[in-house]
Simulated assay, not measured.
Amino acid sequence: MKKILLFIALTLSMLSCKDETKTAETKIQDVKEEIAYASIGMEINDADALTSERMMVHYKNMKAGDTVPTKIKGKIIEVCSKKGCWMTLDMDGENEVMVKFKDYGFFMPLDAEGDVVVNGKAFVTETPVDELRHYAEDAGKSKEEIEAITEPKLEYRFEADGVLLKTE
């Protein structure tokens, strides 16, 4: 009987030694989606760019004459149809930002559309009637729409030194 118990104990101990528990190592890789951009103006990247909604919080706390150096993401509403010297970005569905390019050093493609990242300085200004009419004319507005502009407008503006235009 002792031999049988000894045999069983040895067999169990040998089986328990051979029983290797295998742990599967799962490697999780950070997959960062690369977004393709066309760079216009100064070379910039999209790191640390504020969303347009987040930038509107800053704009609403600014008064005419204030400036904030920043980088924002936005969606193009319109580009100057004559030479691409300005564009407007949708900020939150209700507000838009007029973007001009530093020292007219570069221009947007006339058919530009979609998402962009702009780097530069944000500011608030009061735009006079004659300038508002000029922009309306550049945008191809009708004569009636241009003549309907009779008061200056407090506007959110941006002077960009670099733009990233998302490509498909």
Rank of each mutant, 00 (worst) to 15 (best):
D90G: 02
L89P: 03
G93I: 10
V79S: 00
P69L: 02
C85Q: 11
V118W: 03
Y59P: 02
M55I: 11
K71I: 05
M98F: 12
V124C: 12
L110E: 15
C85L: 09
P109R: 10
K121L: 05
E126V: 12
R54Q: 14
L89C: 03
Y104D: 15
K100V: 11
K83Q: 14
D92Q: 10
C85N: 10
M56D: 05
V116K: 00
V79C: 03
G74P: 05
K82E: 15
G65T: 10
H58N: 15
F101V: 06
V129K: 11
M55H: 11
K73R: 15
M98Y: 13
M98G: 05
V99M: 04
V118N: 02
K75W: 07
L132Y: 02
N119M: 12
G84Y: 01
M98T: 15
V117K: 01
K71Y: 04
C80N: 08
F106L: 04
C80F: 07
Y59Q: 02
K100I: 09
G120H: 00
D111Q: 13
Y59G: 00
D130Q: 08
K71H: 06
L89R: 04
D115M: 09
V57M: 12
L132R: 10
V118E: 01
V68K: 15
V68T: 13
D111K: 13
M62W: 12
M62R: 07
I77V: 10
N119L: 11
F107Q: 13
E94K: 12
V124G: 11
T88K: 06
S81C: 03
T125S: 12
C80E: 05
K83Y: 08
D103H: 07
P128G: 09
V117Q: 01
M108A: 06
M55D: 00
G120T: 05
S81E: 14
C85W: 09
I76R: 10
P69N: 14
M62V: 07
C85A: 12
E131R: 09
V57Y: 04
V57P: 02
G74T: 07
G114H: 08
G114L: 09
V99L: 06
I77Q: 11
T51C: 05
G74K: 01
M98C: 09
P69G: 06
Y104K: 11
T127W: 08
P69D: 12
L89H: 07
C85R: 06
S52L: 03
F106V: 04
L89N: 05
G114F: 07
I72V: 13
V129P: 08
P109S: 06
H58P: 00
D90A: 03
P128N: 14
V124A: 09
E113N: 11
F107A: 10
D103M: 04
K75D: 15
K71E: 02
V129D: 13
G114I: 10
F106R: 06
V118P: 00
D130S: 11
F123L: 05
F107N: 13
K121E: 15
K82Q: 14
D115H: 09
E96Y: 03
D115Y: 11
T127Q: 11
K83P: 04
L132A: 07
M98P: 02
A112T: 12
M62I: 05
L110P: 00
D111H: 07
E126A: 09
K102A: 03
C80K: 06
M91L: 13
K73T: 13
N95H: 15
N119H: 13
K75H: 14
E126Y: 08
R54D: 14
T88S: 07
F107Y: 11
D130C: 04
E53C: 01
G84T: 12
